[in-house]
Design a binder for these strands. Structure first.
Lengths: 357, 357
DNA sequence: TTGTATGCGTTATCAA
DNA sequence: TTGATAACGCATACAA
């Protein structure tokens, strides 16, 4: 087993000092042409690579960003990670992933664990339990320790940091208006409880679109579902709820669903009830997932561009990290140094498939 | 901005030495009752947490495992990561994720990057390009540097390390025998090119099942697809290929597909051609994904239990890492110390849904 | 019971 | 042009 080679070993074998080796490898021209080349050649021969951990300790930066998400087996989140990874890699950073599993305590634990030197900054999306408790102290503490955070998708006003969101409101308005334009008169909404911000915003978009289209918003057409129904074992409950919605509202001719599962399930139930899609019922879902592409009929969606979200979030974080570096270099005044926080909105886009006319 | 507190600061403020603080916080009973409590109280008050990087440098271990996968926007791989994460977290490890994007050079780069001190060991699945080139030097170099690797799913004999695989062969045999038992006489196979080991093994399983069932294996019933067809923009090519398969073999009454996309697409094409599922055609796919649950009819599958794979892989890796520790402690003889490498097989399971009788 | 010195691998400062 | 030394934050062998 060849142990990892260090500067010290190279120095010993070449009978020079460690600092000489260090400088030679950094191509410092303080070092004589010959020694420099001799050292570089030998280092290359031994396949020397500097130890990241030692560098991190010395530089007080890890070149690693921590990503904290509620769930990884989820098309949207994995797409975001992919975006983060791409940008991080390009810019010389690694990505360390933590899962909160929608739990407040796991989120806190994970943050604390990573905040102790393992990462330079976070990109995260808040867990549902945290949103429900409205306890954001861990975020603010992390920030006040000098570790920047970029939040995406599930964000919150109580924390001051950069944010990347999709245009939930406008996207929903667009979707619902499209249904109206396509001739729908009685448009149902299948959404989540309000504490999930994206659910709330998408609901508001639905209402606004109806208002602006001067279509009366029938309260009966709104189905607010508890999160439980998304669990696989509760699929029949979900189907049942949606079936009730359809049966109570026989005139329903359009559905806007705030996520993929709701949308696809709605299509399934509709077909079971003998409704033809898109002739009797048109459906649009807010999602980016795989189900919509392969459903039959394939689902028209409001695409949230997860990868772009990830890319933008990573860029914002790294920009801030590297800005701090410059500040330290140039000794900028503490007070003028704060850069305003940005909330970046990723535009949604309607991708038309077969579930609309 | 409260800077992170270090032992040194605590020592200074309490007018003791750094080592005293270090020992007091480690609850060493060399330290007097009073000082110990005083230091612990103060540290708690300042919310002291040891710096991971410094610990890593000192202990020469990072408590971090590197996960290298070809693709993250993929149900199987994200499920595996979830399994790894759960076990890693339980056992006090972090997870750092690298994506090869099926590219050889990205795989090599990522490994080198992480191997320079950032991680204690790898859990990985080989990229397609690497499999095609059959160049495994980076794995063997990493191992010979003393960094253990656990491979999962896409593994290779040329590298000696722990492995976790699903029982591709047996699972396929089971699936095809089920089709035979259900009365299928002409069973098609939709598979990948042979260089992807799982595709090859599943193909072998198909052939074996037919042989053992004394059903003649008709070469025309086997459709080997290039990987390109899995790309979204090539969906129509995929459909077309499958349609040809069906048209050339009108007697086909069963299909075994080695992945979810092939299976779901086969059902779609079959329905288009007017075949009733499962009455005219029964379909089984090798997968764990979401499409199969929500397809209509829902797809009967051979489940590969991604999460279990991840859990087992992480356990194997951490076991080996911690075994090395013990060896170092007890100064075991270098030669006796090697522990045999294990190849752990995760049993597959058929989950019956609506696409079979 | 506590403190001093050393080292993990690196770079930067200061001397020579 | 090169080398010795200190420092990053921590743990520990050795002194006191």
């Amino acid at each position: 087993m060849k142990k990892k080679v260090t500067l010290k070993q190279i120095a010993r074998e070449l009978d020079v000092s460690v600092s000489t080796v260090s400088r030679a490898l950094a191509d410092s021209k303080e070092i004589g042409e010959n020694t420099r080349r001799r050292i570089q050649a030998f280092a290359k021969f031994l396949n020397y690579k500097p130890n990241n951990i030692a560098l991190s300790l010395k530089n007080k930066k890890t070149k690693t960003i921590g990503v904290l998400i509620p769930e990884i087996v989820h098309h949207f989140f994995s797409t975001v990670i992919r975006g983060i990874e791409i940008v991080a890699n390009e810019r010389g950073y690694n990505v360390i992933v933590g899962l909160s599993n929608e739990s407040f305590s796991k989120e806190v634990l994970n943050m604390e664990m990573l905040a102790n030197g393992s990462i330079d900054g976070f990109v995260l999306s808040i867990s549902k339990e945290t949103l429900l408790k409205q306890d954001y102290h861990h975020f603010n503490e992390t920030i006040s320790q000098g570790i920047p955070i970029v939040m995406f998708d599930r964000v919150v006003n109580e924390v001051e940091c950069d944010k990347v969101i999709v245009d939930d409101f406008k996207g929903s308005v667009k979707a619902v208006k499209k249904l109206v334009a396509n001739g729908c008169k009685h448009i149902g909404l299948i959404t989540t409880m309000d504490y999930v911000s994206v659910g709330r915003l998408r609901t508001q978009g639905y209402l606004r679109a109806l208002e602006e289209s001067q279509v009366y918003a029938e309260p009966d057409l709104i189905l607010k579902l508890d999160d439980m129904v998304s669990l696989e074992e509760n699929l029949d409950i979900l189907e049942n709820e949606i079936e009730q919605l359809f049966k109570k509202n026989p005139k329903i001719d359009g559905v806007f669903a705030v996520n993929e599962l709701y949308a696809v399930t709605a299509m399934k139930v509709a077909k079971k009830l003998g409704l033809a899609i898109p002739d009797d019922l048109q459906v649009i879902g807010f999602t980016d997932g795989v189900l919509s592409k392969h459903a039959s009929p394939s689902l028209t969606i409001v695409s949230q561009h997860g990868q772009k979200i990830g890319e933008k979030a990573a860029d914002l974080l790294i920009d801030r990290l590297e800005m701090e570096d410059e500040d330290n270099d140039t000794n900028v005044n503490e007070n003028t140094r704060e850069q305003a926080f940005e909330t970046y909105v990723i535009e949604t886009e309607i991708i038309e498939r077969e579930s609309t006319k």
